[in-house]
């Protein structure tokens, strides 16, 4: 799946990660896909989960060969949402 925008937060930690994602999502329309590159450990444990909790849809999460993760998230508010 292609994304409209990419955000790299592999060098950030909580709560900076959340602030950057929030700002990135604000610039998108409902249903748009944001690609987020994030580090393993606490970031990958917390970021995808909290995006779901805020109503966004996690489309995919892939571990990269360098140990970081690539996350695709769909901004909340799109029609035909299944949850």
């Amino acid at each position: 799946m292609q994304s409209g925008k990419t955000l790299d937060i592999t060098n950030d930690s909580c709560p900076i990660t959340f602030v950057k994602i929030k700002l990135a999502l604000e610039s998108l329309a409902a249903g748009d896909i944001l690609e987020i590159l994030l580090s393993g450990g606490e970031a990958v444990k917390n970021v995808p989960r909290s995006l779901r909790a805020e109503g966004h849809r996690v489309v995919a999460l892939e571990k990269q060969s360098n140990g970081t993760y690539r996350l695709l998230v769909e901004k909340e508010g799109a029609s035909g949402k299944d949850s």
């Binding site: 990958v44 995808p48 489309v59 995919a60 999460l61 571990k63």
Partner: peptide
């Protein structure tokens, strides 16, 4: 499940 494997990783 989207098969991301995060649960197995962590």
């Amino acid at each position: 499940c989207i098969g991301c494997g995060l649960c197995a990783d962590i």
